[in-house]
């Protein structure tokens, strides 16, 4: 889902840098207020954790493997605002060090995976869980949180791709950036995330939350908050 350089027009990536900047500023202010001097190593730790989740391949029924983005579980374990900073830092490091995601697209990638995904996951979890505390309700809530968060991020990415032929064309009407219209980008991205990657994300979110609820429920943000 990492958008590379060259796919988004300046009229898309510049505003998305702006939106991400607003979220980074709010998140940093919140973190500093809540965690004080502890925030620096704490956020770096959260970023490292988000990165590491992406390194662990998980077996999927059908014989293949996949990895999660980890923004959903980071939001459930540490809170959505911490996830904004942690996942953003991972995406920035991935873009600079590994060429995974473009430099002009850092704003867009951070908006999709570090803003949309943690907040959707967090709110879906809260909505589905309600006031329940038992595993029977928390496990499906965690699965849906991870699943919906990733699908929402994929849909937002697809919209960013799909609007390119509408807003950036050459004199002959040819698309200059991402060439696929909404009618192709949206169903393609949505389907592969609904049927495959969303399930991986949901399973990872559910298994990890289950593990923490069983062994260390005290450190889970969404449990502490309830």
């Amino acid at each position: 889902m990492h958008v590379p350089d060259g796919y988004l027009s300046p009229q898309t990536y510049v505003p998305l840098y702006g939106v991400s900047f607003v979220f980074w500023s709010i998140a940093l202010r919140k973190m500093k207020r809540e965690l004080s001097s502890r925030s620096t190593p704490y956020l770096a730790m959260a970023a490292a954790f988000s990165f590491l989740i992406q390194m662990l391949n998980i077996p999927i029924p059908g014989g293949t493997t996949g990895h999660a983005v980890g923004a959903g579980i980071t939001a459930l374990l540490l809170g959505p605002w911490t996830a904004v900073i942690a996942v953003s830092m991972v995406l920035i490091i991935q873009a600079i060090v590994f060429g995974d995601g473009g430099i002009t697209a850092i704003g867009a990638n951070c908006f999709n995976m570090a803003v949309v995904m943690p907040f959707v996951s967090y709110w879906v979890f809260r909505l589905v869980r309600g006031k329940a505390t038992g595993e029977r309700r928390l496990s499906p809530a965690a699965f849906l949180a991870g699943y919906t968060g990733l699908v929402a991020a994929a849909v937002v990415t697809a919209v960013e791709f799909g609007i390119q032929p509408l807003i950036a064309t050459g004199a002959d009407g040819r698309p200059l950036y991402a060439p696929y219209p909404l009618s192709i980008a949206l169903p393609t991205m949505a389907l592969e995330h609904l049927l495959l990657f969303g399930i991986v994300e949901g399973v990872v979110t559910m298994l990890l939350l289950k593990y923490f609820l069983k062994h260390e429920p005290g450190i889970v943000y969404t449990v502490k908050e309830a």
């Binding site: 730790m45 662990l56 077996p59 593990y211």
Partner: peptide
């Protein structure tokens, strides 16, 4: 396999903390 991976992720979380 899935349970093992989830357990290692949790272990990493504790280790990073």
């Amino acid at each position: 396999g899935r349970e093992w991976v989830a357990g290692r992720m949790a272990f990493l979380f504790r280790k990073t903390q």
